[in-house]
């Protein structure tokens, strides 16, 4: 039997903590890009201009039907053949951002669809430009109900960051594997990784909930 070696766990803790910050940073950066990009994708997809809406629809469907792992592989190992050399971290963040932008785009779409058509008629009757209409009238109504769903994707992203260990990004999983192969002990590093994810997920969930409460209408 292999018992949990507490001194060893303490010894590797700083290295894992260090890498957990990378994990958190990647997740936050990927999420930040995904929520902005996803919004543009959702609005573009609704456009009446087919040259805009069709490619976006295709991109969203394509990315959502293929695994993140393959997408980051493509960015990191295939793109250099075409002269685009990304660092592992860049490829990882871009991969996550793009992948989840396509999911958040669908969330936004649901929110936008839920805004009554009559609101669009009102902004047309007031002669507002589409951009102003989105910013001041449509989005404020579309976003509030979908904030929880968006927040949940932050946690999904966090839990997907270990995929990036496949392209050598040194996030927490990669660090744990390295420790394991150096010491031939996997129990402690992998257990600690699980624990870190638990703490980070709960922490993020708490932050998201606080943010939602703050966005509640003051009525």
């Amino acid at each position: 039997m292999n018992f949990f070696d507490w001194p060893f766990a303490l010894e590797i803790l700083p290295r894992l903590l260090d890498a957990s910050l990378a994990t958190l940073g990647i997740a936050l950066a990927g999420f930040a890009i995904a929520v902005v990009l996803g919004l543009f994708l959702a609005i573009g997809r609704r456009s009446r201009q087919r040259w805009l809406s069709w490619p976006i629809t295709g991109l969203i469907e394509f990315i959502r039907s293929t695994p993140l792992l393959i997408q980051v592989y493509f960015l990191f190992y295939v793109l250099p053949n075409y002269g685009l050399q990304l660092s592992a971290l860049q490829a990882g963040i871009i991969g996550i951002a793009l992948h989840y932008a396509c999911y958040t785009a669908e969330v936004y779409r649901a929110g936008l669809d839920a805004v009554p058509r009559a609101q669009w008629e009102a902004v047309t009757a007031l002669n507002m430009r589409p951009w102003t209409a989105y910013r001041d009238v449509i989005l404020p109504q579309a976003l509030r109900p979908v904030l929880p769903a968006l927040g949940n994707y932050l946690i999904s992203i966090l839990k997907d960051t270990p995929v990036l260990s496949a392209i050598t990004v040194v996030e927490i999983m990669q660090r744990a594997k390295n420790i394991g192969s150096e010491s031939f002990r996997y129990l402690e590093p992998i257990t600690l990784v699980g624990l870190f994810f638990l703490i980070l997920s709960l922490g993020l969930a708490w932050c998201v909930r606080r943010l939602e409460n703050r966005m509640e209408p003051a009525r």
Partner: peptide, 14 residues
């Protein structure tokens, strides 16, 4: 030049 008032008001609720 044209303004319209609707049966269902269509005010901006927020």
């Amino acid at each position: 030049n044209v303004g319209m008032v609707f049966q269902s008001f269509n005010l901006f609720p927020h």
